[in-house]
Design a protein around this nucleic acid. Structure first.
Length: 583
DNA sequence: GTAGGGTTAG
């Protein structure tokens, strides 16, 4: 246009600057800024607004602020763009400050401003500020706007307040696909997978799911290890041509990995044409969970060779992979690579991996010193990782010292009291177990009950410890008794230490037999066709005695058993387990 | 003919 000698006017300049902001062409944008000033558009409101947006969307917040500060006239559009600019850089507090400032200047926020400020609150979990905005919305009758209600639900979801999100959702007269996706994704992210799945079913009577819906619902299947539900959704993805979406492809691989289907996951991973950082991180974490440490390392190196730089999340994956396979030197190597070669400052999660790695490999005092020398304040998970190590190596004395740190940091978390109680029980210090029980009792805490579940023909069967309500309860008990007898015949005696009670051996054995994972495994063996892999998931860590029995059962009934606990997978096959003792 | 907003994977 310029070469043809046609003059630009304000509309031309605004359009082309907007073009730059939507493609992040900062350099061309700057040039246009200069050109516009020379062409004497420098005081035009619409031009300054588009420049402000261009700078903030291209990541040059300082220039955006410069435009905002120097422009003569400011409209609601200018304020909204500036608020969005701060939010984009993670400076939500500044967004909120600006929001109040604009009201003071007598400029009323409109629905664009409201969605922007809600997004800012969502990004950093500013629930209280978000609630203030909600009140403003009610006072100004803005809730009928879809964008506003959707942003409001997302704010509540990201602040972890799904009850409030659902309230907004249920009061919406009109819902669109974004409304459904926001709720489903919110439930998935807030560890409410059943709610996510139920809403997904309900959605299909109202709205047609899209690829984003798939990316929202798959993590729910993953967290439940609901393989069959996940496969149904995979079918949905194939029928609707969503497979090419990389978010969906990555979520699928992750789902199969967390459902224990490593081979299928690898197959799908190989089919992703352009693997990104998330694809690789998922695969590395998956190998780690399944105990394939060297495969995880190979994948991590392959990723780097393909030119993808690891970030802090992918380092968590590789460090955990090392820890699950007991690869101490390799783990240290990655920890140092992260700091020295990649310039990533380790966070609590990374320190937790190293403590875990040291503790699991028996370097308890080294782990203790490592924690003491950490440049950031350790949290309960850090000390908890060492406490786990104390259990593996039966170090009661250190355990007591470590436990006090843990109890101070997370006095409400019963898991840690139980862990220490286990350490005492395994050392047969029953007096101490009793004292600990009293301590829990005084606080009015209750142990998180163990439960295990198994999916059969799409239905999830849940078992809690001591469960005898199931129709097959008698058969289950019979199978467990038979297994125990055969185990004893071959010299495997029950690991009474895991019974956690002071009782005689028969009682202990009964308590152990009631563990939910045993019941679920037995139920799977009885219910699934011969040869089919039994897949059980448990909400806590697997018990040592159950682990022994699972190994034996896999040989006795000639069947693969895959048990997922909170920490990792155990593949039992022909009498041994893939974890090789690292758990 | 021109400026600002909501949902997705580790």
């Amino acid at each position: 246009m310029l070469l043809s000698g046609i003059n630009t006017d304000l509309a031309t300049m605004v359009s082309v600057v907007a073009g730059c902001s939507n493609t992040g062409m900062l350099l061309l944008g700057r040039t246009l800024h200069g050109y516009a000033i020379k062409a004497s558009f420098g005081r035009e409101l619409t031009l300054n607004n588009s420049l402000l947006d261009m700078y903030s969307k291209s990541g040059d917040l300082n220039s955006a602020i410069q435009v905002f500060e120097t422009m003569g006239e400011r409209s609601v559009v200018s304020w909204t763009s500036m608020i969005a600019g701060y939010a984009r850089e993670g400076l939500s507090d500044m967004s909120v400050r600006l929001f109040h400032e604009m009201e003071k200047e007598g400029i009323s926020p409109d629905i664009f401003t409201i969605t922007t400020i809600l997004h800012a609150c969502a990004c950093t979990g500013l629930l209280e500020n978000g609630k203030d905005v909600h009140n403003y919305i009610k006072e100004n009758k803005m809730q009928s706007d879809l964008f506003v209600s959707n942003a409001l639900m997302d704010m509540y979801a990201k602040c972890g307040s799904m009850g409030d999100a659902h309230l907004v959702f249920s009061e919406m007269q009109v819902k669109d696909i974004v409304s459904w996706n926001t709720m489903i994704g919110g439930y998935s992210k807030n560890s409410l997978p059943n709610e996510a799945l139920n809403l997904f079913v309900e959605m299909q009577y109202n709205s047609k799911p899209n690829s984003i819906t798939m990316a929202c619902i798959l993590p729910a299947c993953a967290s439940l290890a609901a393989l069959e539900r996940g496969q149904e959704i995979h079918g949905h993805i194939l029928r609707n041509g969503f497979s090419l979406d990389r978010h969906v492809a990555n979520a699928l691989v992750d789902m199969y990995l967390k459902c224990g289907a490593l081979g299928l996951a690898r197959l799908l991973f190989d089919m992703i044409p352009a693997k990104d950082l998330v694809s690789w991180t998922v695969m590395v974490a998956g190998y780690g969970m399944h105990g394939y440490g060297s495969e995880a390392i190979a994948a991590f190196n392959e990723m780097r060779n393909s030119g993808i730089e690891p970030d802090e999340v992918s380092f968590i994956s590789i460090l955990y992979a090392c820890s699950h396979s007991g690869l101490l030197d390799e783990g240290w190597g990655f920890f140092n690579m992260m700091r020295n070669n990649c310039g990533i400052e380790p966070k609590l999660e990374h320190y937790a991996c190293i403590v875990d790695l040291l503790a699991r490999t028996g370097n308890l005092s080294k782990a203790y010193r490592f924690i003491k020398r950490m440049p950031i304040e350790p949290d309960a998970t850090i000390w908890g990782a060492l406490l786990c190590g104390c259990r593996i190596y039966h170090d009661v004395k250190l355990a007591e010292k470590v436990a006090e740190h843990v109890f101070e940091l997370e006095p409400e978390n019963t898991g840690y009291y139980v862990l220490l109680a286990n350490i005492y029980a395994e050392a047969e210090k029953w007096e101490e177990v009793k004292k600990l029980r009293e301590r829990i009792g005084r606080r009015g805490l209750r142990k998180n009950p163990g439960c295990s579940w198994i999916e059969i023909k799409g239905k999830v069967h849940i078992f809690v410890a001591g469960d005898s309500s199931h129709p097959l309860a008698n058969k289950i008990e019979l199978l467990l008794k038979k297994t125990r007898t055969r185990m004893k015949e071959e010299g495997h005696f029950p690991k009474m230490r895991y019974a956690l009670i002071k009782a005689d051996d028969t009682e202990k054995e009964m308590a152990l037999c009631g563990h939910s994972e045993k019941i679920a495994m037995a139920f799977g063996i009885l219910s699934l066709p011969p040869g089919k892999t039994v897949r059980v998931t448990k909400n806590l860590r697997v018990c040592g005695d159950c682990h022994e029995m699972a190994k034996f059962m896999s040989k006795m009934v000639k069947r693969d058993i895959i048990l997922r606990d909170t920490n990792r997978f155990h593949h039992f096959k022909d009498g041994s387990c893939s974890c090789r003792g690292h758990w």
